[in-house]
Nucleic acid binder design. Structure first.
Lengths: 113, 113
DNA sequence: AGTTATGTATAAGAATCTTATGTATATTTA
DNA sequence: TAAATATACATAAGATTCTTATACATAACT
């Protein structure tokens, strides 16, 4: 990903959210989209991305469809029905996570008398 | 931690922020504080916490001070000078991380015409 | 002709965490 | 009063996720 360890564990959620939003995407496209959205701050490495895609597919959350464009292979991934349901859960978990982290680092200021 | 993988990588930042806020804390106290703040959602396990504290100490970010209270040992940790500086960086990274994740999952709505 | 961009893949190792286990004392509950 | 729970620290084995490096192949740019 990047230098910060914080992104560890968030890749699956990112992939699934992008697929939910865009219907179908291929690996390289995902890396570029993420780079764009985060203004270059988050760079997903191939070594992290492809194994993650393969695992999500093996778990039945993604379907794959191979296309050949400009004589180059593309593997388009999309959410299965099961994947769509799971995406809802993952996004809900992410919201809880963010809320909890904000509670921890932005505690409500102590009242002074 | 909990069930969600999302917390992976965030433990060090949590520890350092709590120490910045509270001056000094001991391990068990940290687990209870986190449980309280997150309303039971985040439970830090000892297997994660103690190695993390030892590593932060080895890196010179924490100092330790042993006390005996009620005939039971407590190891109080506090930030070193270096640890205070590093905490500022970690919190800044966390803010970037949260911002990026929100950009990814809450994209600005597409304009419709 | 060489570099960069596009496109996928895997393997070795690092880092972080879970789960299980161990030790010890204090307090609460049945 | 015996058993269970809470307090308090520690480590080891294994799982998961990621980084880094390498590999192959085509297209576009310089």
């Amino acid at each position: 990903m990047k230098n910060s360890q914080l992104y560890k564990g968030s890749l699956n959620t990112i992939i699934m959210k992008l697929l939910e939003e865009n219907g179908k995407m291929y690996g390289y496209e995902i890396t570029q989209k993420v780079k764009l959205i985060t203004q270059g701050e988050l760079n997903i490495t191939e070594g992290a991305l492809y194994p993650a895609l393969h695992k999500l597919e093996a778990e039945g959350l993604l379907d794959v469809e191979i296309e050949k464009v400009d004589n180059r292979m593309r593997k388009y991934y999309k959410l299965t029905e099961s994947g769509q349901k799971e995406t809802v859960n993952r996004l809900s978990e992410l919201e809880d996570f963010i809320r909890n982290m904000q509670s921890l680092v932005n505690p409500s200021p102590k009242l002074e008398f």
